[in-house]
Design a protein around this nucleic acid. Sequence first.
DNA 1: TTGACATGTGACCAAAAGGTCACGTATAAT
DNA 2: ATTATACGTGACCTTTTGGTCACATGTCAA
Lengths: 109, 109
Amino acid sequence: MRSVEDDDGVFKALADPTRRHLLDRLFERDGRTLTELESEVEMTRFGVMKHLRVLEEAGLVVTRRSGREKHHYLNPVPIRLIHDRWIDKYTELRVSTLAELKFRLEKTG
Amino acid sequence: MRSVEDDDGVFKALADPTRRHLLDRLFERDGRTLTELESEVEMTRFGVMKHLRVLEEAGLVVTRRSGREKHHYLNPVPIRLIHDRWIDKYTELRVSTLAELKFRLEKTG
DNA sequence: TTGACATGTGACCAAAAGGTCACGTATAAT
DNA sequence: ATTATACGTGACCTTTTGGTCACATGTCAA
């Protein structure tokens, strides 16, 4: 059984395309600052800041301050927990194979 | 690089607690009808129907009609694709171990 | 210590999402 | 044929969310 609060913050955080894009950028290279990430997105600094805050509160991003800079790092654990919620160990191999196949097909098609 | 459309439908679908609860019920037992699922939720039939439609359009649920009934089945492939987007093969083992640990801790704590 | 840089806050507004209801269609049972 | 069942649609309203801006704080360099 799950708590009432669920993992709501994580799912809400992932629901926005801009936030997913930010996660993609951090997946590619960790430790970026707000100003760096700002240049990756068609949006004012304030919008990006809000999004990063949502990601951080969800635990998908952890931060480290260094002087006047704030560095952002991707934390993949909540993602894995989503996976484990609806894919048990017995079906994991089968599903991951299908997912791989789908990925290949979309790449060529 | 990803398409502009992203997997928006999947993430939006997962963003609502009621829809996640419906997925949980289908994970537990497949093939339920709308009326069956309705009893699992504090909401009118119309709300549940909307939610199921969102899940179906996202590809998280597939359906099969039989007479006047419509049966719903969980499709875990999109979930796996989320996983693969931010967890590569090299970090998967480490992250899944951490996730397992977190799960055990929360269970006892 | 003056000025530029990096991040932060609260108010505000438009757009999207969640939920209900009146009404409607198709299938099954009596 | 009539009634009950199971699902479907469109309009409607309320709440939440995404984005911007004026303003503000803390940090580094010259």
